[in-house]
């Protein structure tokens, strides 16, 4: 896992309030994942990585690694 991926995972872990968040975690199994979380992820990408991420793309992600890849590829 790249340094940048770890940084994104760290931010996601704070947003989702889950300390041991893993890239392989299924989003559908997370307690907190709603429209507010999507806004927080868009916000995090904009402020910390200067990247524009689409809400619809985030909502299509199945696992945490999909979100990380989405942000890295932008």
């Amino acid at each position: 896992m790249s340094k940048n991926s770890k940084k994104i995972l760290n931010h996601l872990s704070k947003i989702l309030e889950k300390k041991n968040l893993k890239p392989t975690d299924n989003i559908s199994e997370l307690k907190l994942f709603d429209s507010i979380i999507i806004l927080q992820i868009i916000n995090m990408c904009n402020l910390n990585f200067k990247k524009k991420i689409d809400g619809l793309q985030i909502s299509k992600c199945k696992k945490i690694i999909d979100i990380i890849n989405l942000i890295e590829k932008k």
């Binding site: 999507i38 806004l39 868009i42």
Partner: peptide
């Protein structure tokens, strides 16, 4: 409301 789209529009 489509929250994520409005949010993206505003911050970008």
């Amino acid at each position: 409301l489509n929250g994520p789209n409005i949010f993206s529009f505003a911050i970008n």
